[in-house]
Design a protein around this nucleic acid. Structure first.
Length: 662
RNA sequence: CGGGGUAUAGCGCAGCUUGGUUAGCGCGCUUGACUGGGGGUCAAGAGGUCGGCGGUUCGAAUCCGCCUACCCCGACCA
């Protein structure tokens, strides 16, 4: 067996398995000094676990999954469950450290809550329902149900209820970095959608929304902190307006790592800087048709077409040889009324109509209708009410009480200005297996819909209101749509991976759980909350998605598990190993983390692994460079065929520092 | 939850259609020799409940049934 490199540092000869190396600088002065400067760490490749592989498992498809596996960062344990090996854990720690740094600087305090929670807590906020099957349930020995926490709003609100009762204790911002659990319907894409993942979640508490100490102030501080965090991580990211989703609340922003393989679509205005998730994105002013909405003669006689087994737009288009943009898509929502409301107004529905090639946006339907509590109608129930699901047209609403029709601007066209003729519409036949062509708004809804609206005819509408039909924006924005923030500017689409999300929650959780404080006027007031999440493990994967090449990962210096890899050409050679130890001492003293590849492998293997693992700088120590009194310096990120450069030993630390900062 | 697919050594795969000695191949691993700056060569090895259970059969990796796990598309998704 070859002489271990470690024997170079006076170690007892008796140790078979080498003891940890003392990488501290040799000094005659053994006085302990306290330093606030971070010292880098050094690690021998042969004495840690970095199981690189030439091939990835067949299961891995996305680049981050393949590369994190091949480079020895992660191993899969089960669906959506992974081991974080030493390199991964170092990177995760680096992310967490940056997160802590910025959260603390923004006035938040770190704490830790349990992963296991009594199930009752989720019943209090009805999230046992809204989270549904995504909530992991655990039965204990007494048959009680516990939840594995997917997030901690309930726990922290409950905590605060017990210890905060005066406005003088607010505002507060508390956070934790912890493993979260979600029983995802379909875990996928390696670390990007897991059932167990590491997350930073923060919760802020306020007496007011506005003013000093208010929610808006904390929200803005978190927005800045998040921007700092992702910038310091070295990520290319965008902050975009977002839908707040089932967690509830008003304003919300997502932080997206810009990456073509991302599964979220964002739309950006190149002029104003406005950016939003496709689910949230507003659409700017769309030019109204010259003759007005719904105006235009029929393109022909309303004609029924037998379309057996074609409930979907695609099926009909194929069957009838018509383009989706000539179809009307009608999507039925049911208003979620209380029993009292049902007694007063009956069952109520909203029919959203968009062009066949567009998608209905539920948030916009809520906004335009003024109904915040709606859900896709149950097909069976809807059919019983006379809506032929799959074959519904706007005509289905005519004559029915308690139905509001929302028509997207692009679907409310009667005369096609661009084509210079009446619009040809295909839509549902309102009975199973039939569609109609030559649909015309004015003729087939009985009268000019907007005029009928104004005159209170047609007897539709919600909650006794007058409108039975409204025209507006009820569809998802698309690339090329007008920007809502700049004239004559089109929205541009981009893909991203969500790594952070901040919300203004309001009093949703505090009201549900009775978290109230006494204000200066002795009044009980609901506490206003915000919550702020960062997917730590997802950030690591997103970084790899964003930054890799055919050879492997390319880590930004801030997230690299080690900053510098010293590749020893001949670990057995005393001159080389001695030089590597001296070099690593100097580097760690300068705060640089060093991995020394001391394996007895061929050069090719070591270089391939170096590229795969992707540390920012590789220093190669071999006879060539040593004879020249230096070390070879090569940046991982750089021109593909760049020749390594020999740097004099004395300048190597400075070069590394410069390379890492640059 | 709907649709599709896969399961054979640590990883990637062949064998199955048409059942039949000891289940193969590449990578990796161990030992040795030669090598030594981009996954080297040669030699000798170790490593398998063929995902599980049941059935058919003289005989099952192979045929049949059930189950499980994992992956992909969709639905879903702070």
């Amino acid at each position: 067996m070859r002489e271990p490199i470690l024997a170079l540092v006076d170690l007892p000869n008796s140790t078979i398995r080498p003891a940890p190396v003392d990488f501290r600088p040799m000094s005659t002065d053994r006085t302990l000094t306290i330093s606030t400067t971070r010292r880098g760490t050094a690690q021998l490749w042969s004495r840690t676990l970095i199981p690189t592989t030439r091939e990835a498992p067949n299961d891995a498809e996305v680049p981050s999954h393949v590369l994190l596996h091949r480079a020895g960062f992660i191993r899969q344990v089960g669906a959506g469950i992974y081991d974080y090996l030493p390199l991964a854990w170092r990177t995760l720690r680096k992310i967490s450290d940056i997160v802590r740094d910025e959260m603390n600087a923004a006035g938040a305090s770190e704490m830790l809550m349990p992963a296991l929670e009594p199930f009752e807590l989720f019943k209090d906020t009805k999230r046992d329902q809204t989270y549904g099957d995504n909530l992991f349930r655990v039965h204990d020995r007494r048959g009680r149900i516990n939840a594995l926490a997917p997030t901690h709003e309930e726990v922290i609100t409950e905590l605060l209820r017990g210890c905060v009762n005066s406005y003088t204790q607010l505002p507060l911002n508390l956070y934790q970095i912890q493993t979260k659990f979600r029983d995802e319907a379909r875990p996928r894409a390696g670390l990007l959608r897991c059932r167990e993942f590491i997350m930073k979640d923060a919760y802020s508490f306020h007496l007011d929304v506005d003013g000093p100490g208010g929610l808006n102030e904390a929200y803005d501080a978190m927005f800045r902190a998040y921007s700092n965090i992702f910038a310091r991580c070295g990520l290319d990211f965008s902050a975009v307006e977002a839908e707040s989703g089932p967690i509830g609340g008003s304003a919300s922003h997502e932080f997206m790592v810009n990456c073509s393989s991302g599964e979220d679509t964002v739309l950006k205005c190149p002029v104003s800087g406005y950016a939003a998730n496709v689910e949230k994105c507003e659409i700017g002013l769309r030019p109204a048709p010259s003759k007005g909405y719904f105006a235009g003669d029929p393109s022909g006689t309303l004609e029924e077409v037998h379309t057996p087994g074609c409930p979907g737009i695609d099926d009909v288009c194929k069957f009838m040889k018509v383009k989706p943009q000539h179809m009307l898509k009608s999507v039925l929502f049911k208003v979620q009324s209380t029993p009292e409301q049902v007694a007063k107004f009956g069952e109520e529905y909203i029919l959203a109509v968009v062009r066949g090639d567009h998608e209905v946006n539920e948030g916009k339907v809520k906004a335009l209708s003024g109904c915040t509590d709606i859900a896709l109608a149950d097909p069976v129930e809807a059919i019983a009410k006379g809506f032929a699901i799959g074959f519904v047209s706007p005509r289905a609403a005519v004559g029915k009480k308690g139905v509001l029709v929302l028509v997207d601007r692009d679907a409310a066209i009667g005369f096609d200005d661009a084509a210079g003729k009446s619009k040809f519409w295909v839509t549902g036949g309102d009975k199973k297996d039939y569609h109609v062509k030559h649909f015309n708004w004015q003729r087939d809804l009985g009268k000019d819909p907007l005029a009928a609206n104004a005159q209170g005819e047609n007897k539709g509408g919600l909650r006794g209101g007058d409108d039975y039909l409204m025209v507006g924006d009820v569809r998802n924005a698309l690339e090329g749509d007008p920007s809502p923030r700049a004239d004559n500017t089109k929205l541009v689409a981009a893909r991203g991976i969500e790594v952070g999300h901040i919300f203004k929650l309001g009093a949703k959780y505090s009201d549900a759980m009775g978290l109230r404080v006494l204000d200066e006027k002795q009044q009980k007031r609901s506490v206003i909350m915000g919550c702020y999440g960062i997917g730590v493990s997802r950030t690591m994967a997103a970084c790899v998605e964003m930054s890799h090449d055919a050879d492997g990962i390319i880590w930004p210096a801030a997230l690299a598990p080690f900053h510098v890899l010293i590749t020893l050409m001949k670990p057995d050679d005393p001159r080389q190993s001695q030089a590597s130890l001296a070099l690593s001492r100097d580097l760690t003293a300068a705060g640089i983390d060093v991995l020394i590849d001391d394996r007895d492998e061929r050069a090719g293997v070591k270089f391939k692994d170096a590229d795969l693992v992707g540390l920012p700088i590789r220093l190669t120590l071999g006879d060539k460079a040593l004879d020249a009194g230096g070390v070879e310096f090569k940046a991982r990120k750089g021109p593909a065929g760049a020749k390594p450069e020999v740097v004099p030993m004395g300048e190597s630390v400075a070069r590394c520092v410069a390379g890492l900062n640059g």
